[in-house]
Structure formats: C-alpha cells, structure tokens
Design a protein around this nucleic acid. Sequence first.
DNA 1: GTTAGTGCAAACCTTTTGCAGCTCT
DNA 2: AGAGCTGCAAAAGGTTTGCACTAAC
Lengths: 161, 161
Amino acid sequence: MAAAGNQEVLRQRGVRLTRQRRILLDLIDQSGQHLDAESLYQLAKEKDPKLNRVTVYRTLKLLKQGGLVDELDLMHYGGDQHYYETRLKQEHAHIICLRCGKVEEFFGEPLQKLRRQVEAHFGFEIILARTEIGGYCPHCQSLRAQEMADAAGRAAPRLRR
Amino acid sequence: MAAAGNQEVLRQRGVRLTRQRRILLDLIDQSGQHLDAESLYQLAKEKDPKLNRVTVYRTLKLLKQGGLVDELDLMHYGGDQHYYETRLKQEHAHIICLRCGKVEEFFGEPLQKLRRQVEAHFGFEIILARTEIGGYCPHCQSLRAQEMADAAGRAAPRLRR
DNA sequence: GTTAGTGCAAACCTTTTGCAGCTCT
DNA sequence: AGAGCTGCAAAAGGTTTGCACTAAC
C-alpha cells in the first residue's frame, strides 16, 4: 500500500526499480521513524550486505528531489546529519526534546494557516515547509532542574570555604 | 543600542569581550542579513586580517548556546552551511525562493499560536523554534514556466523525426 | 597573575564525484 | 542492447579539536 504507492510513482516516472531502491524505499516507508543516512545504511545492509553507503545518499537525493521524502534537521540534535521521512503523512511540525532527543509530531491548523498567509502575503508558490521546535519535554524539565541544582552545588562551594 | 545590548549581556555573564568577539557581534547585529560562517569570516577579516576562521566558529557556537543568535538552514539553499541572525527581532518564519535564493521574513500570529498550542498539547518548554518555507517567488514562478517549456522543447523533439 | 580565548594545523564527519562495470527494462 | 544504476575510492565542504601562545579581567 504505502510502500507500493511510492514505488509505483517512481516506476511511472521512468525511474528504475532496482533491488537497492526497493530495500531503501521499504525501510523509509515502513519505519515510522526519522532516519538519517547512516542509520538507513545500517538497516539496509542487513538486507543486502553489498549495498553501498553512496547508494543510500543517491537514493535519498532522488526521493527528496522527487518530493517523496522530506528532509529534516531536528534542530541538529545529534549532529549535522539530515533525517528523512515519507511524505505520505499530512504536514506536521517536529518538536524535539533537546535533552533526551524524543521527537513529537504536531498536526494543527496553525500550520495550514501559516501556509495560506504566506501564499497570500508574498504570492509565493510553496513547495515545502518545515517547522522544528526545540525545547524540553515534561519529563526532562524536572530532570534538568535537578541537574542545574547539582551543577550549582559543584561550582559554588566557594562560599563554604 | 542593539550591538551594545548583546555585548552587555555577555559581559554580565562573565564572558570576555575580546577584540575578535566585538567585531563579530557588531557584524551580526548590524548586518540585517543572514550570514553563514564563511561570509562572516570574510567580513571580519576586513576589520582584522589576523582573525581566524576557527574563532568565527567558536564565537557562533557561544552565541548560539547563549541564545543570542538563531541558526538557520534556509532549506539548504546554497549548500549545507548554517546561517545566523540576531535574536533581537521578533520570531519569524523564513521564506526562501528555491530558484533565486531570495529570503523573505514572515511575522504573523500563526507562529505564536503554534507555540502556544505546542506548549499546551505536549507540556513542552520551548527554547527555540524555526520555520522555513521553500518555494518560488512571484518573479521566479514565471521564469520557471519559461524554463520548463524550453527543457521540454529540447527533450521532446523525438516526435519530429 | 590567572584563566579564558586565540591562532594554527590537523582531524573529523557527512556528503558528493569520477569512473569502470553491472543490471533493469 | 543500452541507458541508467551501483560500487569503490577518493575528494570535497563545513566544522571541530589539541596545543602552545596571548590577552582580558
């Protein structure tokens, strides 16, 4: 269904469906995850140990340009690599916890409203949009408070001498 | 004013105001532009030819972590480098033309609404938010139509043989 | 006088490119 | 059959790190 859908799109565009591409497309569409090139490569290698990292990059570029996947940065949590997800889902924002790395997805009307207003105000033809929000999830908010207190305790005892 | 403001913040945090940092802060705050590390380095070198590229990176990291500048990707138009801008302005989205690279800024209530909804729905403590929209500006929309027609003319004349 | 900050060189990580050989259609 | 795709090796682009020297406070 989903996977077959994207593969069908490519076929109709005259793009060859090689064994490698099928593996990568399946992984991207099935994993509901946000995968970076390296993770995708590691997963793909399990299915085909010969598959090369370069093929992963080339396939991702192809899919990105074809509008089949979106490229994310996730606020550069974890480095400067990019993350990818299918474009089968409705547009959404990504909310990243800067402490634990958990990613939430937000589908709300402000996103559509934003699109419409930008189109109206600037006459832009929007091709893709990306909203990323970094902060602390409820769980990490309390842990952070603890960490800050610890750090202060370690740095401040000047006072005690 | 603006420039002095950020320098004052750093001083109060116990960060040393070196000649290099003053130059870089002035450039970032004054240029209303979105500068990447290399451009900033080139500009800074005009004021101090000895200033090193590494110092630019280190200063940007300092400012980013201190919440004094925002880091942008501008949809990776022009490569994978990052762009920087002061955080003195109100929050805004960046609209990038994927053909000419022009960047517009959008300040609208959907952005604040989005923030409030995310805080409410997930209990997130938001530290920073970034919205980037890629598309074609009015001018490039017509140029692109022309280009597409040209490309089709070059690729299709199979029919004529 | 201390300690943080700088410059230089070298390393690092992610991504891209050139080219010979393989494979999908 | 033949254009398109892959794998390998090597390079490129952007950013970070280790260390000795310098300068801000």
